[in-house]
């Protein structure tokens, strides 16, 4: 009886608001407007909209995504469900400032696809953008284009592996333990190195992505609009 359970806690939406500030606002924004995490005011939830789905997402996280188990108990999770549903019914989608169609052209001519993929087309050295509009708000997307160092998922941080033979390999870290490190290099090759063969592992620059400050205001607005329109499989 998940709906009944959430209904019982509807009165706890105010408590849910406080919990939201503690557990959710860092990614989803203080009003649920999104940021690193999805915009929750739209009432669209990628991993299910039922009370039970929301409870599961909040309580246990979503495997293979950035959404973690929240760390609240069941009662708190239901309060959060109640709060999320309350803001979901109030919100409206952000209005993108530019022309998404034109932005698709900006995306193509700027070489974004050499590192990023959309609908399985493109590179893997940067995050998949197929549903970035669902996961990130407009401000975050623009910031990621002009200030890519501002916030980088740890699995996309740039590293430089310098071997004892003097070779330097730039890429992102796929895995690491105390014996070895695995890297996807800039040419999309999967590489593995024993640490015994490595002189050093450097982190000179947080992101491999260049800053696209050279884009015109219109191109930037169009590109942001295009990316924000990407919602993944509906």
């Amino acid at each position: 009886m998940p709906y009944a359970a959430a209904q019982q806690h509807t009165a706890g939406a105010a408590d849910g608001a406080a919990l939201f500030q503690t557990y959710c606002a860092y990614c989803h924004g203080s009003h649920g407007e999104g940021g690193r995490g999805a915009d929750l005011t739209t009432g669209e939830y990628q991993h299910g909209s039922s009370d039970n789905d929301l409870f599961s997402t909040i309580r246990y996280g979503v495997r293979g995504t950035e959404m973690p188990a929240t760390g609240v108990n069941d009662d708190e999770a239901w309060k959060l469900v109640a709060f999320v549903k309350s803001i979901g019914s109030q919100g409206a989608k952000e209005v993108a400032p530019g022309d998404a169609g034109a932005g698709k052209q900006v995306y193509a001519r700027s070489g974004c696809a050499s590192c990023h993929s959309i609908d399985k087309q493109g590179g893997a050295i940067g995050p998949d953008l197929s549903d970035v509009g669902r996961r990130r708000n407009l401000k975050y997307i623009e910031e990621s284009i002009v200030k890519p160092d501002a916030d980088i998922p740890v699995q996309y941080r740039a590293i430089q592996v310098v071997t004892k033979s003097g070779q330097t390999i730039n890429g992102i870290r796929l895995n690491e333990d105390d014996i070895s490190i695995q890297v996807r290099d800039l040419d999309d090759n999967l590489r593995s190195f024993l640490k015994a063969d490595i002189r050093e592992i450097r982190h000179d620059k947080p992101s491999l992505m260049p800053s696209y400050t050279s884009l015109s205001r219109k191109d930037l607005d169009d590109l942001v609009s295009y990316l924000h329109s990407l919602r993944g499989a509906q």
Binding site: T65, M67, P68, P153, V154, R173, L174, N175
Partner: peptide
């Protein structure tokens, strides 16, 4: 843990980077 490739790494409530 804080290994890349898991959703632990991207979550600010969880661990920080291996560095």
């Amino acid at each position: 843990g804080n290994l890349p490739g898991t959703n632990m790494g991207g979550n600010p409530r969880q661990r920080f980077a291996p560095e």
